[in-house]
Simulated assay, not measured.
Amino acid sequence: MDYHVWFAYVVTAIVFSLAPGSGTVNSISNGLSYGTRKSLAAIAGLQIGLAIHIVLVGAGIGALVAQSALAFSVIKWVGVVYLIWLGIQKWRDTESVSAKAAHESRSAGQLLRSAVLINLTNPKSIVFLVALFPQFIDPAGDQFQQLMILGITTVVIDSLVMLGYTSLASQMGRYIRSDRVMGRINKVFGSMFVGCGALLAAAKS
């Protein structure tokens, strides 16, 4: 995989991880309730769930590339459309993250299992990966190597972002809960998603 392709993926993956979602809600809630150290188990759980999705998506894309170049191309264009649609939806979303501190104490194991289920049952993650991965894969290259690079990059970036959200929540929880602030954040990331989709479309024309 060329360095410039990987760097472009890093930028896109950062936007994906930063955009508010179920993993964000979980990280913020745990940060408010348990602090950063205890919440590390939950962050690990989120990454386990994400890694399972990555394996499933990677296996499917690899099989698709081997069978049909046309189908692979169609998936790439569907991915462009999805990124732009997601950006529009995110721009219109003004709902705040409901990060309510829990009153019951939970063990690290419970936090980990809960986080795994949160990501495993989140269809947006696997749909986004299906839309995203093909944009950065060279069908003529080593599929396994490329998917490994993209997968590891995704997990590392998401881990760091969730750690950042968790740490931030313990310090600035009341601001994160604000509808006005979250509305502004959503508009910023909505614009980024649309921009990523537009750039990918331009690169294919």
Rank of each mutant, 00 (worst) to 15 (best):
Y9I: 04
Y9C: 02
V11D: 02
V11A: 10
V11E: 04
T12Y: 07
T12M: 11
A13E: 02
A13P: 03
I14Q: 08
V15C: 03
F16T: 11
F16G: 02
S17K: 03
S17P: 02
S17T: 06
S17D: 02
S17C: 09
S17F: 01
S17R: 08
L18C: 09
L18G: 03
L18V: 02
L18A: 01
P20S: 04
P20R: 05
G21H: 06
G21P: 01
G21Y: 09
G21C: 10
G21A: 14
G21D: 04
G21I: 11
S22T: 15
G23V: 14
G23T: 14
T24V: 11
T24D: 10
T24N: 10
T24K: 07
N26P: 03
N26K: 11
S27N: 08
S27F: 06
I28Q: 08
I28M: 08
I28E: 04
S29C: 07
S29R: 07
N30V: 15
G31T: 15
L32V: 15
L32F: 01
L32I: 15
L32T: 13
S33F: 02
S33H: 06
S33V: 05
S33Y: 06
G35D: 12
G35P: 14
T36N: 11
T36I: 14
R37V: 15
L40K: 08
L40C: 15
L40I: 13
L40H: 06
A41D: 08
A42W: 02
A42L: 06
A42M: 02
A42R: 07
I43E: 05
A44K: 09
A44F: 12
A44C: 11
A44M: 09
G45P: 06
G45R: 10
L46T: 03
L46W: 03
L46E: 05
Q47S: 02
